[in-house]
């Protein structure tokens, strides 16, 4: 049981978190645009997340908070 919280407006859509997720649960939301004009990262299946925080470790902009 884990929960990811995204500070969406800080996301620059670099996608490093997407690649870092061992379970491939993240994606860049192509249909959304944040304040900075990027497609922000989001989690596709929260229930499958184990809270390993790999995504948060890779994120250069401290977008992701992880609870477990």
């Amino acid at each position: 049981m884990a929960k990811l919280t995204f500070k969406t407006d800080f996301c620059k859509g670099c996608g490093l978190c997407v690649d870092a997720c061992p379970k491939k649960l993240l994606r860049l939301a192509n249909e959304k645009i944040n304040k900075k004009g990027h497609h922000p990262a989001e989690i596709t299946d929260q229930s499958a997340c184990v809270g390993c925080a790999s995504c948060a470790l890779m994120c250069p902009d401290c977008v992701i908070q992880v609870e477990r």
């Binding site: 049981m1 620059k12 670099c14 994120c59 250069p60 902009d61 401290c62 992701i64 992880v66």
Partner: peptide, 26 residues
Amino acid sequence: MAVVFQKPKALADIPMHYCPGCTHGI
């Protein structure tokens, strides 16, 4: 649930100007 990862206190809560994917942020 406990917070296991969050922005450190010594890093200001403001967006950084670095390009997307720049490792300076890390």
